[in-house]
């Protein structure tokens, strides 16, 4: 398995998520598509952190060992933060969807289209 495999999968998932977020009518499905986009980024971040060692460190393995660990872990830490924030984002999104549902008895995005030119 090379890095390219992971990155291609991530790119495909990201594209599916973006397509869904733009075209889906159901507000819940929009939130699910957003989650797909964030998870595609997570896959890239973890894959990068597994495979990439900066050139400057790779050429200098003695002094670079500690630094390499720090570089490698960054991607995983990034992922943990993305998961946390995405959860908060979806929680707020659901709260707003709920209040839209109370207003209009519908969670279809096309029903919430009062504001336009």
């Amino acid at each position: 398995m090379s890095l390219e495999n992971f990155l291609v999968v991530a790119a495909i998932i990201f594209a599916i998520g973006l397509y869904g977020a733009i075209t889906k009518q159901n507000a819940i499905a929009v939130l699910m598509s957003l989650e797909l986009m964030f998870n595609a980024v997570n896959i890239s971040a973890v894959a990068m952190s597994r495979y990439i060692v900066p050139v400057s460190i790779a050429q200098n393995p003695q002094t670079g060992a500690d630094q390499a660990v720090q570089f490698l872990l960054t991607g995983q830490v990034f992922t943990v933060f993305i998961i946390t924030v995405a959860a908060a984002e979806v929680a707020l999104g659901l709260a707003i969807v709920l209040s839209i549902f109370r207003q209009r008895a519908s969670i279809f995005v096309s029903d919430a289209a009062e504001l336009k030119n």
């Binding site: 977020a21 507000a27 957003l34 707020l92 999104g93 839209i100």
Partner: peptide
């Protein structure tokens, strides 16, 4: 709520 949803998404 509509503007909140649009901003959030």
């Amino acid at each position: 709520t509509e503007s909140g949803m649009k901003f959030l998404v």
